[in-house]
Nucleic acid binder design. Structure first.
Length: 236
DNA sequence: GCGACAG
DNA sequence: ATCTTGTCGC
């Protein structure tokens, strides 16, 4: 496990953070299809917080895309680097998530984020930001529609409906289990929306939430409990 | 101005 | 995100 400091020059205000998003936004690549579902590796990343002590733990769990078996995992713990502000979630999660990804013994393949990518007030959510910073293909799978609108998809698993910002399709509501609330998929970096949805379906053979996210969620909670950051931990 | 708002 | 017991159901 590695311990993370808030990076030098990290935005301290909402205004600075929005300026960073505006500057990085045009580096997102939207014209690639991305890795074929069911091939290669898929990595889930997630974060857990102890707001009382300003501590954050991140986990990255690498799955074999064909079998969904865990092939590698890593965690990182750090100091909370930004308050939660809708639209600025990335600034709260990215330093620790990057450290967890860096600690992996292998390439992550497609990175699945717990949140949004293109579906964002400035079209630059967590998945977009993480993609630009790492160069890896990324997608976002969120549990809530944020500020966007959608019509309920059909009741059968696999049904979709557009996630809309006005009339612009910024993502898709995707039913991953029959009769259960859909998840909300948007593209991050170097992956098409169709491919992002196909991956999400491949990752949800049993549960509503992608297996990658579920594995990362439980691992980062565990890391938060077990690894209260202490002097002498490795600093990244 | 007011309310809503990924995690 | 997080605070939180038991409980219904496969």
């Amino acid at each position: 496990m590695t311990t993370v400091r808030i990076p030098a020059g990290w935005p301290a205000t909402e205004e600075q953070a929005r300026a960073v998003q505006d500057e990085l936004r045009d580096r997102v690549v939207l014209d690639e299809d991305g890795p074929a579902p069911g091939t290669g590796r898929v990595t889930g990343v997630d974060v857990a917080y102890d707001d009382q002590r300003d501590v954050v733990a991140a986990a990255a769990v690498v799955l074999d895309a064909a079998t969904l078996d865990v092939v590698a995992e890593a965690t990182a713990v750090g100091q909370v680097s930004f308050p939660y502000v809708p639209g600025l979630l990335a600034f709260r999660e990215i330093p620790t998530v990057l450290a967890a990804l860096d600690a992996l013994p292998c390439a992550p393949g497609l990175v699945v984020c717990d949140g949004y990518g293109l579906a964002h007030p400035r079209r630059f959510g967590l998945a977009s930001h993480l993609g630009v910073l790492t160069g890896h293909p990324t997608i976002g799978v969120a549990k809530n529609p944020f500020t966007f609108t959608y019509d309920d998809p059909g009741a059968v698993r696999g049904s979709v409906s557009p996630l809309l910002a006005g009339t612009e399709e910024v993502g898709r509501a995707l039913r991953t289990r029959d009769g259960v609330k859909p998840v909300f998929v948007s593209v991050g970096h170097r992956v098409s929306l169709d491919t992002a949805c196909a991956h999400t379906l491949a990752l949800t053979p049993e549960y509503r939430i992608p297996e990658s996210t579920r594995r990362a969620d439980s691992l980062c909670r565990q890391a938060l409990k077990e690894a209260a950051p202490r002097e002498g931990d490795q600093i990244v």
